[in-house]
Amino acid sequence: MPSQTSSLPIIDIAPFLSDKPEDQEARRLTANAVHLACRDYGFFYLNLSSYVDSAEPEYLTTLGRRFFSLPQEEKDRIRLANEDHARGYARLKENVTNGKADNHEGIDFYRPVEKPDKTKPLWGENQWPAKPVDFKEKYEVWVEKMKKLGLIVMEAMAMGLGMTQDEWKELRSQVDDSFWVMRVIGYPPLPNDHDGFSCGAHKFLYADSTPSALQVLLRQPGLVGSDITGLPSEKGSESGVWINANPIPGCVVCNIGESNFANAEFLVWEIWTNGLYKSTLHRVVHRSSNYRVPFFFEPNFNAHVKPLPAALRLQDGSAKQQLKSSVVYGEFLVNKVGGNFDRYSSD
């Protein structure tokens, strides 16, 4: 069992892009690497150089930069209040993490729904910027690629857990219509007097070209280290030290995900694996301006998330007696999103 180090594992997804029989062993090794990374870190670098051209995400961030440089009144044309208070543009410090305003602005998109109704939580329509003119076209192409990639990574995780074909088929039916979320985020430099972070500690394919911006809490029980930024430790009850997840060309950073449900931890993969996989705290600290496009590959809206038999087989009897709670994903999401933003008035 590899010990935790001060850097995250790097995993190449290429073997899962091929269906050649001779690549089966490479897929097995990749799946095992994903399993160990999820179990020991909750984070890993995913090498996508064989899946996407690096120029594509770079252009997406350029489009984001152009949008965020527009006059405020232009950006407010697609503000959250126009729709369901979840889809659309959020002003600087309107997004809230752990009760503190985050020093960023962004646009949020969700999977389109049938019969949109903006009076219902999460059931409105996505609001696409009119400028830049090719914004919607380029980002919709990216969404389709990330949805396919999400299923690929899910298959690798299923194989790493030792799932049977029937078990993988069942799990796939819970994520094959992913209620995905995509955010386009702009980060101005973090003010010295700001009581918070660019984005506070929380538990996504995640991309950023800025060194030291994305920070991950490396769990080491009993270890209390100095914070690498001089900012508040923001670790809650967890022991460990913050490490930088600096950019690696051709790679994105993957996290198995976290959110908060009814004041109790709700972790999709923690539930699926009965606690074998644990999400890892991470945060964003920007000392310069930059942009990122996180994509969240989520379960289907009506997915019933519960411990997987394959995960239980990897655990001893005592763990089986302490099953994680089950939940319907859409019910969790509606509760979560309601507390993410400070709503501002129509005027």
Rank of each mutant, 00 (worst) to 15 (best):
F332Q: 09
F296W: 15
E22A: 06
Y139W: 12
Q174L: 12
I152Q: 04
D12K: 01
G160S: 01
V293F: 05
A31S: 12
Y51W: 15
C251S: 02
N244G: 08
L333T: 03
E114R: 08
A81K: 07
N244V: 05
A130K: 14
Y45A: 00
M146P: 00
G42K: 05
T97D: 12
E137V: 13
P249Q: 10
W142R: 06
F261H: 12
L314P: 03
G236F: 04
I78V: 06
F197Q: 10
S7P: 05
L36R: 00
A207P: 01
G225I: 05
P232I: 11
P307K: 13
A303N: 09
Y187N: 07
R66H: 12
H104E: 06
P191M: 05
S318L: 11
S178E: 06
W123C: 14
G236H: 03
V305H: 02
V181S: 11
S226G: 08
Q72S: 14
W269L: 13
E140N: 07
I243D: 06
S173F: 00
F68T: 07
T30S: 03
K148H: 11
E331P: 00
H286E: 09
N340C: 09
Q315C: 10
V337R: 14
F204A: 14
T229V: 12
E22T: 02
R66N: 13
E83D: 04
M1S: 10
Q24L: 12
D342F: 05
V253C: 12
L276V: 00
G250Y: 07
D108T: 13
Y110H: 14
H194V: 04
V34E: 00
V327I: 13
